[in-house]
Structure formats: structure tokens, C-alpha cells
Amino acid sequence: MSDPDAATARVRSAASNLGLDIEIRERPEAGSLHEAAALLGIEPRDIVKTLVVKRSDDSYLFALIPGDRQIAWPKLRTLVGVNKLQLPDPERALGATGYERGTIVPLGSTTAWPVYADETISGRVALGAGAHGYSLFVDAQALFEALGATVADISQPLA
């Protein structure tokens, strides 16, 4: 979605419908996770990556992973009960969510895919906000409850 106002409005509307208190802030581009965290005044672990993950049956799920960690594929496959999961190409990710890579957030996705969140995520966190140049801030526990997220050990330290 190239219109940032429409994308962030979609996120705000979805949050409102869930009774979720969010803040969306415009932010400058960052060249790295550490730079992004410094710009936002938070720790790298408090930037939560929303990854859209494709199942073999062409359905999807969202995996929420702390910025300083990565998906632990064997753990996620076991939790979901499948043998194969993969990250889709950018075009499929856009088709599955209505958001471009780097802006994906489970709020306002064109389909409400199941959400799996890493158990290490806590407190106030930043996520994509549906448009480039924006970040969404929310209480992690409130987000998980509003989305009915499955919270489990699905990450590992960055390689």
C-alpha cells in the first residue's frame, strides 16, 4: 500500500475495533536495527519484527520476533504442527497482508492470519505501522490479548 495515510488509518481502525491503545509516530529511515532503536529511544529487542510466514497450503501466519533475535524455524514448525514453513516473496507477502515488507503489522491485515509471538517480547514495543517511515507503539501483552496470539518460544539469538 503506497498511501501512508490510508495504511496508517487502516492500522488505527483495526486497533480501535479491538479496543487497543496504540501510538503511531513518523520516524526517519534507519540503516540498521541499532540505528532504528536509537532513533526511537528504545532497545533493539523492543523493536518487534512482524514476519508473514507461508504454510505449504498457501495459508499464512504472523510471527512476532524481537529485533535482536530471529525465527527458530524448528520451534515454530513444531508449534504450528507442520513440516514446512517459509518466508514468501515480497509480492506474496503484500498479497497476504495488504502491507509491503518492512511495514507489515498484524493490525489491519487484509486477512486476520493467526499470530504467534515470541515469549521474550514484553513491555512497550515498536512494530511496523503499515507504511514506510512510521512506527507503531503498543503494550505487548495488550497486543497479544487483542489478537489472540499464541505466545511461545519461537526465536533464537541472531546468528
Rank of each mutant, 00 (worst) to 15 (best):
2 S>R: 03
2 S>C: 07
3 D>F: 11
6 A>V: 04
6 A>G: 02
7 A>E: 00
10 R>L: 12
11 V>T: 02
12 R>F: 01
13 S>P: 05
14 A>I: 08
15 A>P: 03
16 S>P: 09
17 N>S: 15
17 N>W: 12
17 N>E: 15
21 D>F: 12
21 D>Q: 14
21 D>R: 14
23 E>P: 13
23 E>Q: 14
25 R>K: 10
25 R>E: 07
29 E>A: 14
30 A>S: 06
33 L>W: 12
35 E>A: 14
35 E>K: 11
36 A>C: 05
38 A>T: 09
39 L>S: 04
42 I>N: 00
44 P>W: 09
45 R>S: 10
46 D>P: 01
47 I>L: 10
47 I>T: 03
49 K>N: 01
49 K>E: 05
52 V>L: 07
54 K>S: 07
54 K>T: 06
58 D>F: 05
58 D>W: 07
59 S>L: 00
61 L>C: 13
62 F>Y: 11
62 F>S: 08
62 F>E: 03
65 I>N: 11
66 P>K: 12
67 G>M: 08
68 D>V: 01
69 R>Y: 12
71 I>S: 04
72 A>P: 04
72 A>L: 11
72 A>W: 12
73 W>R: 04
74 P>L: 14
74 P>N: 12
76 L>A: 12
76 L>V: 02
78 T>C: 15
78 T>L: 15
79 L>T: 10
84 K>H: 14
85 L>K: 04
85 L>G: 13
85 L>V: 08
85 L>H: 01
87 L>H: 11
90 P>W: 01
91 E>A: 11
91 E>N: 13
94 L>E: 14
94 L>H: 15
96 A>D: 05
97 T>H: 02
98 G>V: 02
99 Y>I: 01
99 Y>H: 06
103 T>M: 06
105 V>M: 06
106 P>L: 13
107 L>C: 00
108 G>V: 03
108 G>T: 00
109 S>W: 00
109 S>F: 10
109 S>R: 05
109 S>M: 09
110 T>F: 15
112 A>M: 15
112 A>E: 15
113 W>C: 10
115 V>P: 01
115 V>F: 10
116 Y>D: 10
117 A>I: 09
118 D>H: 13
118 D>I: 14
121 I>T: 03
121 I>E: 07
121 I>R: 02
123 G>C: 01
123 G>L: 10
124 R>D: 05
124 R>Q: 15
125 V>W: 00
128 G>V: 01
130 G>F: 04
133 G>D: 07
133 G>W: 11
143 L>E: 06
144 F>G: 05
145 E>A: 13
145 E>S: 09
145 E>N: 08
146 A>P: 01
146 A>M: 02
146 A>G: 04
147 L>S: 08
148 G>K: 10
148 G>D: 05
150 T>H: 08
151 V>T: 05
152 A>I: 04
153 D>N: 12
154 I>Y: 08
155 S>W: 07
156 Q>W: 02
156 Q>L: 13
